[in-house]
Design a protein around this nucleic acid. Structure first.
Lengths: 220, 220
DNA sequence: ACCTGAACACCGTTCAAGT
DNA sequence: ACCTGAACACCGTTCAAGT
């Protein structure tokens, strides 16, 4: 299995793989140049051969996540525009949550990479096909991205990772935490505590997503 | 001006003041226990008297931001529900942007503090008064928070701080960056480049906010 | 091109000690 | 209660040196 001849050592790809594995096992806070290097059997400084310091490492990780976002459904002629946008929103959330630390990574820098622009373009195609003017389509495209990425960010901050079982466990935790609070001034929140405890949940995200899409497709 | 008697030294309030001043002057990345301590003329370890380590410092900073969010307009009987929600959304964005690093701080932990719950409750009052069922109101309240906070987070990540002049400068920068990209496969994005360059702008936020609110108030 | 090793200026946190 | 000082186990990055 070891390749013959002069050993092909590593590539940037391997480094990013290692970085995501590290975050998966030890959390985003454990992400450091030194630990990624150690995991690959390298000294910290050797990592600079593959990646432009910590900033370059983070940039490459963002590109990896963004590159994994499926866009094909946005051009699916068999679906209505609303359906296409809903499928896309669900897929975007899933993709980002699947990458440990993905939300934090994306939201930490501007959305201006190649993949981000390709996503924007696909959304523009879909939204103009639904009858929006090009300028409104652009505004709506950004609003949709903001809603999905904002959801994912808050979900990740709350400890979620897209796994339904983990989602369930967190909901139970949050429900218990809500009971602790004094009810004065929070009557409504307490009364609908079951919903509040499940804010970071696939079903509730889907509910909000459908409403947001409806808002975007409304004739002004 | 120096108080007589045994010197009243500092309080947690002063520490948080110092922390925000530090972030304002040197950016979020400069925020550290050691630097906040130094700015107050203390050793790093002395800061632990006022704040429970770095985590406690961040928690207190979040509470400070959340405590500054005005909620009164959500109960303003002189406005329609849509108008109340729009005023609130604009104010929420302004408040968070006014605090340097506010977006990052808030989005980094779960929205479960006292002030977050009070905000939720006020939104529930407003949304139920608009005719939504309590459960739908809860779902809509979270969707609105996600949209506003997601906007603010991406805006801050792009370098924005709510200042209109800075907003303008960033738009020009982003417009220039867009020109650099090859147009193939990005025809629509290029054509509406003026809008795309102004994604992180008060006007475009207001546009999206109105649409999102409309979506929430739509009868299902 | 790829890697090491030493060095520098940082971190957060603990602990024992002082007042 | 409030603070210091020393210590520990970390950071990211530079630079000179090796192959």
């Amino acid at each position: 299995m070891t390749p013959p001849g002069p050993a092909r050592r590593l590539s940037e790809h391997d480094v990013i793989d290692g970085a995501f594995a590290l975050v998966r096992e030890h959390g985003v806070d454990a992400l450091s140049v030194r630990r990624v290097a150690a995991r690959l059997g390298l000294t910290p400084t050797a990592l600079y051969t593959y990646v432009d310091g910590r900033a370059g490492l983070l940039r490459a990780m963002v590109e990896r996540v963004m590159g994994g976002i499926p866009l094909a459904m946005l051009d699916d002629a068999g679906l209505t525009a609303a359906e296409r946008l809903e499928q896309f929103g669900l897929a975007l959330r899933r993709t980002v949550l699947e990458h440990p630390g993905g939300a934090t990574l994306i939201m930490t820098g501007p959305l201006d990479g190649t993949h981000a622009l390709a996503m924007n373009e696909a959304l523009l195609r879909c939204l103009t096909s639904a009858g929006l003017t090009l300028d409104d389509a652009a505004r709506a495209a950004y609003a949709l991205q903001v809603f999905v990425l904002g959801t994912v960010m808050l979900e990740a901050a709350d400890g979620g990772d897209g796994d339904p079982q983990r989602e369930e466990a967190l909901a139970v935790e949050r429900r218990a935490a809500l009971e602790q609070y004094p009810v004065d001034g929070l009557a409504l929140t307490a009364e609908t505590g079951d919903i509040v405890a499940r804010y970071n949940t696939t079903e509730q995200f889907a509910w909000g997503l459908r409403r947001v899409i409806a808002g975007m497709l409304t004739a002004s």
